[in-house]
């Protein structure tokens, strides 16, 4: 890993993101809207039914953490699409930039962005719903790190699929995270899923993160097995996504897609 290269690409992203109002809106607009709509909905549900009061905090915590995962994957995927659409991809691949340096720089930008998003959402949640992010304790860092790692695998996989299958696969940049959301136990526990779907859910690292989040909000204690299970799965998926990416990249080099889809 050449850190100079990673830094150079981060400078590029900084130039792109820091200046564009629309991109800034894209980072903050949807998460804030999510938080407001679902937050108020859960407050309302609480009023009209005898739902558990913790439901509001569960939902708000889920929205905040979901946005960590989403941003981590998004920054990697969208940065790639950006270079593709600008026809800059060949300049990138013709330069001494290794694919993992390219992904690492986007991932670090994702880390930066998601940290800012979490701070903003945490502040709004505290002001509007009296939700305390600090209630998640130090375990939060472990959960957060796991979501970032999962974002790496998802982002890498997205780029690989777009490299290999070209424009029709571009929608995956936005769709892929939502494809796994139903089995990620984001807004409801795994136990709610039909029996046959539960094993699938247990293979998704984020399921453990969200289950862990609910536990810590309920009991003020995080059993570390949630974090470790997620980490174990993340390591496996990072390896799988790296191999899948390599295969897609090699296939794209074989078929000339790197050059043709960039043009």
């Amino acid at each position: 890993m050449n850190f100079r290269t990673v830094r150079a690409l981060m400078i590029k992203y900084w130039f792109v993101w820091s200046r564009s109002t629309f991109r800034m809106l894209d980072i903050f607009f949807w998460p804030v809207m999510d938080l407001l709509v679902w937050g108020f909905l859960s407050v309302y549900m609480l009023k009209i039914s005898n739902a558990v009061p913790a439901a509001v905090t569960f939902l708000i915590g889920a929205i905040i953490l979901w946005n960590v995962l989403f941003r981590a994957q998004q920054v990697i995927a969208v940065s790639y699409l950006d270079d593709l659409w600008c026809r800059n991809l060949l300049n990138i691949f013709a330069a001494p930039i290794r694919p993992y340096e390219y992904v690492a720089s986007a991932w670090l930008m994702g880390l930066l962005q998601s940290t800012v998003v979490v701070c903003v959402l945490g502040t709004i949640a505290a002001a509007v719903y009296s939700f305390k992010l600090t209630a998640l304790g130090y375990g939060f860092i472990f959960l957060y790190a796991n979501l970032m790692l999962m974002g790496w695998s998802l982002g890498l996989l997205t780029i690989g699929l777009i490299l290999r299958w070209g424009p029709p696969a571009e929608a995956l940049a936005w769709a892929l995270p939502f494809l796994i959301q139903p089995v990620s136990a984001v807004f409801y526990p795994v136990s709610v899923l039909p029996q046959w779907l539960q094993p699938v859910s247990m293979l998704v690292p984020s399921s453990y993160v969200f289950e862990g989040m609910r536990e810590v909000l309920r009991t003020s204690h995080l059993d570390s097995h949630y974090g470790w299970c997620a980490l174990g799965l993340n390591i496996v998926y990072m390896a799988i996504s790296a191999v899948a990416f390599k295969l897609c990249f090699e296939e794209a080099r074989q078929k000339g897609y790197l050059a043709k889809y960039a043009v």
């Binding site: 100079r4 290269t5 830094r7 150079a8 690409l9 400078i11 590029k12 130039f15 792109v16 200046r19 564009s20 950006d82 270079d83 600008c86 026809r87 800059n88 060949l90 300049n91 013709a94 330069a95 001494p96 930039i97 960039a262 043009v263």
Partner: peptide
């Protein structure tokens, strides 16, 4: 090595000097 093609472009949302700066950093 380096490469230029009339059919490849540098990111359009970066200023001219910024694009050159980024590539100068990439190549060290």
């Amino acid at each position: 090595m380096n490469f230029a093609s009339a059919y490849q472009f540098l990111p359009y949302h970066l200023k001219v000097w910024e694009n050159l700066f980024v590539f100068s950093e990439i190549y060290g």
